[in-house]
Simulated assay, not measured.
Amino acid sequence: MAKPNKKGPVKTVQIGCLQCKTPLFKYRKGGKGTLVKCFKERIVEDHTATPCRCPGCGQEFARETLIRGVPAFKMIGGKVHMK
Rank of each mutant, 00 (worst) to 15 (best):
N5D: 15
P51L: 05
G30F: 00
G58T: 05
G30K: 08
K26D: 02
E60D: 10
Q14F: 15
E60Y: 09
P9V: 02
Q59K: 15
D46S: 02
Q19I: 10
P55V: 03
E60F: 05
A62S: 15
F25N: 00
A49L: 09
C17I: 04
R53S: 02
T22E: 02
K32H: 11
G8E: 07
T48Y: 04
G8L: 05
L18C: 13
V10I: 12
T50A: 11
V36N: 11
K32S: 15
K26G: 02
C20A: 01
G31R: 11
K11F: 11
K21D: 11
D46C: 08
K11I: 11
C52E: 09
A62K: 13
K6R: 13
L18H: 12
I43S: 01
E64I: 07
R63I: 12
V13E: 13
R28E: 08
P55C: 07
C52A: 13
Q19W: 12
G16I: 01
G58H: 04
T12P: 00
G58S: 01
K3Q: 15
A49Y: 05
K21R: 13
F39A: 01
E41K: 03
T50I: 10
P51W: 07
C17G: 01
K32W: 14
F61T: 12
K32T: 14
A62W: 07
I15A: 10
V36Q: 06
Y27V: 03
N5H: 14
K11L: 11
T22C: 02
P23H: 14
G16Y: 05
P9K: 04
